[in-house]
Structure formats: C-alpha cells, structure tokens
Design a protein around this nucleic acid. Structure first.
Ligand SMILES: [Zn+2]
Ligand SMILES: [Zn+2]
Ligand SMILES: [Zn+2]
Ligand SMILES: [Zn+2]
Lengths: 165, 165
DNA sequence: ATTGATATGTTATAATATAACATTTATTGT
DNA sequence: ACAATAAATGTTATATTATAACATATCAAT
C-alpha cells in the first residue's frame, strides 16, 4: 500500500510521548532551517503545546499556557504563531472541533485525512492517495476540479473499542 | 453508479431557483408531517433563508434577515431553528465555513460529502457509498471504526472553470 | 379550562478569531 | 559597528460564532 501514508498513527496510551514531541520539534527545526524560516521561541513553545498530546488543542488553552509569570498573552500572539505553523505544515486545524493538532510528517502534503476518536480524542492523520483520487474522480464526473479538502472522520480507535466505549 | 447519489448537483446560474426552494419546503413539510414534528413559522422562515441560494449562509446573516419591522432577533432564535433543521436533516453545517446549506434530499442520509466552489460559493452535496466505504475500509486497517464524517472539498465548478476563475 | 410539553423571547455571556497600530527584535547593507 | 530595513511580537480593541439560563408564549390533549 505504497500510496497510503499514515502520517500520525494512533499510539498506545502507554507510548513514550516525549519521543513524538522531540521528533516533531526537531523536524520543525530542520525544516525551518532548510526553508530559511525562523522557529522563534514563541512559535516553538506553541508547537510544543500543540504537541503536548495527540489530542487537538484549543487556541485559548494554548493562550492560557503561555503566561510567563506576567500577564496572559493576547489572542493574536497565539493565532499568529498557529498561522505560521499551519502555513509550514507543522500543525493542522481540525475544523469540526476548532482545535489544532500537530502534523507527524510536515512537508509531506498540505491536507491530510484525520481520524478522530470520540472516546479518547486522539487524532490519527493519513495521506491516502486512494481516497484523494476517488474523491477527485467522483468530483470530476460532475465537472468539479478539486483544489483542497477537509476530511475529518469521527469514530473509535482500537483501544477505545476494547474499553467498550 | 447506483451507489453514488447526487443529493444536490451544481445548478446552472440561470436555473429557476424557486423550484429548488419550493421543493425543499414541501419535502420538509411532508417529512415533518410523517414524523409528527412541527415546521413552525420560524423554522420555515429559517429554512427558506438557508435555501435562498445554493451558497452556505451564515447564522448571523439569517438573524439579520429575520427582523419583523420590530427589532432584530436574538442569536438563540436562529441557532435553535438551525439545530432543529440540522437534526432533521433539512440543513447541513459546512464546518470549514461556519455556514449552513440546505439539504437536497432530507432523510436520505445524515452526512453527505460537500463540493464547495471557490469561484461562486455554490455547494453540491453527494452521498457516495464508494467514498464512504473506502474511508471506512482504510480506517478499519488501523483498527478505527467510523461513526460519522465531515467531508468538504474545495475547488471549482464547471461554470466557474469556463469563466476562467 | 387545566395541564404538561414544546417552542420562542430575552438577557447575558462564552468561545473563537481578526484588525489596526505600536514596539521590539532580527537581518542586511554599508 | 551602525543605520536602514524587514520580520516578529505586543497591545488594545473589536468582530464573529455560539450557548446558558430563565421567562413567556403557544400548542396538544385531557
Ligand atoms: Zn505521542
Ligand atoms: Zn480512542
Ligand atoms: Zn436552485
Ligand atoms: Zn462555481
């Protein structure tokens, strides 16, 4: 299945998440270096907060986590950082949740397909050419040319099914 | 292609939209009658406003159109009507736009797949079993069981391509 | 008419996001 | 190193989207 990439799989609840976080940060760092972009302290902190788990994070929760002993940051602070991270593909917005999730393979593609567990809230990301091609082909039969897509699938991950959720 | 339903096709810009509107209202009326539900004056007006075109409509635009010479209605008025209409499948929310669009075949299924033209904003709705099955099958390979989905595809309709948009 | 359920009105507020402009920090050219 | 420029962040205000809580009105059936 060479045309079906799992950009972020569901991880066992006992996995070492520090590895996910470290990997995401180092990918972002090297990608920014390649592209001549600045992964500033703020952008890095926001990326860390988004990658705090595999669950989508709300912009205002990030905002609340950003305080430096002084007062709370203002919304544009976090939205600008999120805009940058989304533009560079380090973070995706889950439209059906108004929340943001880290991308497991930045640079792989701009738009993935997201599986969202209604039990544990974890998100997995695919980039599946079969799905994309089928949608493009069905759309084309109606004369429609695809530019982008928002594909968010709600359901239960394997672990949550076992728990009987 | 019996397993691919076009619930709302793209209509030519010169089509007689009063037919779409009339059809949607009469379907809603008969469906409510069957189900013992009340398509009240307010709900009917909101449905008419959503069906004012094939473009998604914003909740607050509906709100602004609801004035009866007296003062503007309050948000819960329109959100409650939209909740009812969505629950009964007469209206869908387009998550990527925070806007609402009429359903061409209420009762056919709960979740369709939406093609959204970035030229004219028109929306077409599919209920394509091939797409749904493929997504369910890909998800299942990861142990994920699908409950629902949000599929919104951005691109250009045939008419807008001809216009060079 | 009385009752209970459903729907709507009303006020306030929560949650999400952007506009506009000031200030700071980093980069570039000299 | 210095000034000029560009990029990023801070700050204040406001726009947009949506819900909570409770009061009133309407409807359906006894
Ligand atoms: Zn992890
Ligand atoms: Zn789960
Ligand atoms: Zn029409
Ligand atoms: Zn179009």
């Amino acid at each position: 299945m060479s045309n079906s990439y799992i950009l972020s799989p569901f991880k066992s609840s006992s996995h070492t998440h520090a590895h996910c976080l470290g990997s995401a940060l180092s990918k972002a760092e090297s990608t920014c270096a390649e592209r001549g972009l600045r992964l500033t302290r703020l952008r890095r902190r926001v990326l860390e907060l988004v990658w705090g788990s595999h669950e989508p994070v709300k912009a205002y929760d990030i905002l609340d986590s950003l305080h430096d002993n002084s007062r709370r940051a203002a919304p544009p602070t976090v939205y600008r950082a999120l805009d940058f991270l989304r533009q560079e593909g380090f973070v995706h917005k889950i439209e059906s949740l108004n929340a943001y999730v880290g991308c497991g393979e930045p640079g792989h593609s701009n738009a993935g397909q997201f599986l969202i567990c209604s039990g544990c809230s974890a998100v997995a990301e695919l980039d599946d050419v079969d799905i994309i091609n089928m949608i493009a082909s069905k759309a084309r039969q109606l004369g429609f040319v695809v530019q982008d897509h928002t594909i968010e699938v709600q359901g239960l991950c394997a672990e949550c099914q076992e728990k009987g959720l």
